[in-house]
Write a protein that binds this DNA or RNA. Structure first.
Length: 599
RNA sequence: CGGGGUGUAGCUCAGUCUGGUAGAGUGCUUGCUUUGGGAGCAAGAUGUCGAAGGUUCGAAUCCUUUCGCCCCGACCA
């Protein structure tokens, strides 16, 4: 069997120039290095270097998931719509779900994820309590017609995901599986070269999900916002993060309410400017439509310098908040621009914790061109309901230890969810327990986007010249550059080929560059391919019977006897892999320890 | 879906305002020279100027419509 290993046989140009319109470093380098090619927005083809990396990542994931008892399966991309009607998602999901018809007009969908298929598979196979617990997983394509793909492989429409589904009789069993997967994830991210990935509390959706964590690579180019504590282990996605908010005006006497004329001051900024106060002195009101369960409009009040977190609000309302339109304002006698919960007719007033201790605020008077001064929520809106519904922001304090928090950006490289019976119940999955009674099992699900993970490694590990792949996932273990001699002498090429075969025979995956091009181009190409260990032989080194070695990550280099190249490469690869495995172990141990401490 | 930008050679872009019939660099092909960080000289190939319609003697350029792609936001099972 023959395998492509010479750079001149490799399909895929490498570019000197940065492609137009590319913002993320991973996107740029993956294009420039000939790893990926765009086909349509959010849809890519993968060339050999990228494919080799993806397969290595998959193998690491496979080992770790097998290790926690996952059974590898494969479920289809094209699925009958009835499956999705059973779970209710056929109606619940909009344009992200691609719907199509087969030749017999049967409605089909492209799977965005495989909970339905997993339950459909499991419910016919696991019918006795003796069958539980178990988990299945696969590496499978998903198609999500994303509103806005972006950043190369960071957010795409078609992608391969490792998705695992575990099935349990009780919460205790689910918890066990959940922490096993969490531990496997720590090892996976460490083994692919980004041990700095952290797990954060995340939003599990307003329906049912009780616990979920996202695995985040903190990087400025990330699209999620992550709150971390500078002191303790608190970390959470902005969607669910809570914080202690410093009151700005608490230790003062409550003054009598006073109405002031504030013409043409509809926005918080206008009011603040008109009255010469900071926006934090204003009680901002945001009005939402009534929900199905409650016919009253919803007025959310919070400090003027803060924003509504609609995720948190959704949990309070038990519905997705929608901004009010004119009809809502009219029906509820709320004056837009001058709204507040004060004597609001037929509105539910939800007040953010940010206002709990603030005194003598400015608030709308529900009257055109008038605001109140010295507004105090407990006195002026006795029926107010207090909730934490604002977005955590800079300057807030950690909810657990009170230390300063930090706001970071992150890329979500994986997630783990406790789904409960969200899918098993509507899809009528049951098993018979010891007493002969039918029971509904509960589920967990665990995802890792393989392509996104590759791109994330580039985001974390690169320099100006290209990606710096850890040896565990590098497209080739070593590269061998033969620099052309000044004379017609072919001994350099001969020696390179000999060495190349020796390395290959020793089981080392090696890429040979024996092209008749300038040295600079060869070095640039090999750097773009990010190969961890590079060898160079030239007339100069051959005269001494040596080859030059160079480590991509550190730039260290030296000379080595030709007959020691193979053993040096073997030893180096072995020791790098060992280092990675040690890091994986220590990351895993750390997490287990923190986990134990918390308990 | 809202806002912004952009489509001209494989890639990066000029030309568009002021209409006159297609350009540069890089890459590619061939030859010679060169060879330790993207070499030099010479010769050559490559475009429905995103698409459709319109105005005009004449459209990459003006007008209308439309599509793609990128970025910000909304959304993100």
């Amino acid at each position: 069997m023959r395998y492509f290993m010479k750079i001149n046989e490799l399909l895929g140009k490498r570019y000197k120039e940065k492609p137009n319109d590319v913002k993320l470093k991973s996107h740029e380098l993956l294009l420039r290095g000939g790893y990926i090619r765009p086909v349509a927005s959010g849809i890519f083809s993968i060339l050999l270097p990228g494919q080799k990396i993806l397969k290595k990542i998959e193998n690491i994931v496979r080992q770790e998931i097998n290790n926690v008892g996952g059974q590898e399966v494969e479920m289809p991309l094209v699925q009958p719509k009835e499956l999705w009607q059973e779970s209710g998602r056929y109606a619940a999901i909009n344009d992200e779900l691609v719907r199509l018809k087969d030749r017999n007009e049967r409605g089909m969908v492209l799977a965005m994820t495989h909970e339905e298929a997993a339950v459909a598979l499991a419910r016919t196979e696991a019918t006795s309590y003796k069958d539980f617990p178990f988990s299945i997983y696969q590496f499978a394509k998903k198609f999500r017609d994303e509103a806005r793909p972006r950043g190369g492989l960071i957010r795409v429409r078609e992608f391969t995901m490792k998705d695992a589904y575990s099935f349990h009789r009780d919460q205790e069993s689910l918890n066990k599986s959940y922490s096993e997967y969490a531990s496997a994830y720590d090892r996976i991210f460490a083994r692919v070269g980004i041990p700095e990935v952290i797990s954060v509390k995340s939003d599990s959706g307003m329906m049912g999900g009780n616990v979920s964590h996202e695995y985040m690579l903190l990087t400025p180019s990330g699209e999620d916002t992550i709150i971390t504590c500078t002191k303790c282990a608190y970390r959470a996605n902005k969607e669910v993060a809570t914080a202690n908010i410093e009151p700005k005006n608490a230790d003062v006497d409550v003054l009598p309410l006073e109405k002031v004329h504030t013409p043409n001051t509809k926005t918080i900024e206008e009011v603040a400017k008109f009255l010469g106060v900071d926006t934090s002195r204003i009680a901002k009101a945001v009005v939402y439509k009534p929900t199905k369960k409650d016919s009253r409009a919803v007025i959310v009040m919070l400090r003027g310098d803060r924003e509504v977190n609609e995720n948190k609000l959704a949990k309070v309302l038990l519905a997705t908040p929608e901004f009010a339109d004119d009809s809502v304002f009219e029906a509820s006698k709320i004056v837009p621009g001058f709204a507040s919960g004060y004597k609001a007719c037929n509105a539910r007033v939800i007040v953010d914790e940010s206002l709990r201790n603030e005194k003598n605020l400015i608030a709308g008077a529900n009257e055109q061109d008038y605001h109140f001064k010295n507004f105090n929520v407990p006195r002026d809106i006795p029926e107010a309901e207090f909730y934490d519904i604002s977005v955590v922001q800079d300057g807030d304090r950690c909810p657990e230890c009170g230390a300063q928090i930090k706001i970071n950006r992150g890329i979500e490289v994986g997630n783990i969810f406790q789904l409960g019976d969200k899918y098993t119940k509507p899809m009528k999955m049951t098993y018979t327990d010891e007493n002969g009674a039918l029971q509904v099992p509960i589920m967990g699900c665990y995802g890792i986007g393989i392509g996104r993970l590759m791109a994330s490694v580039v985001e974390a590990k690169h320099d100006d010249r290209g990606p710096i792949w850890p040896v565990s996932i590098a497209p080739w273990d070593v590269s061998l550059i033969a620099l052309m001699p000044k004379t017609n002498d072919d001994s350099t090429v001969k020696s390179a080929e000999k060495l190349y075969h020796e390395l290959q025979s020793a089981g080392i995956d090696v890429l040979l560059d024996d092209r008749n091009t300038s040295a600079g181009e060869k070095f640039a190409d090999i750097d773009l391919l990010g190969i961890p260990l590079q060898f160079v032989i030239s007339q100069r080194t051959l005269e001494q019977g040596k080859a030059e070695w160079k480590i991509r990550a550190t730039g260290e280099k030296g000379l080595i006897d030709l007959d020691k190249v193979v053993s040096m490469a073997q030893n180096w690869i072995l020791s790098e892999n060992q280092k990675i495995m040690e890091i994986a172990k220590s990351v895993q141990d750390n997490t287990i320890n923190t986990f134990k401490q918390k308990k």
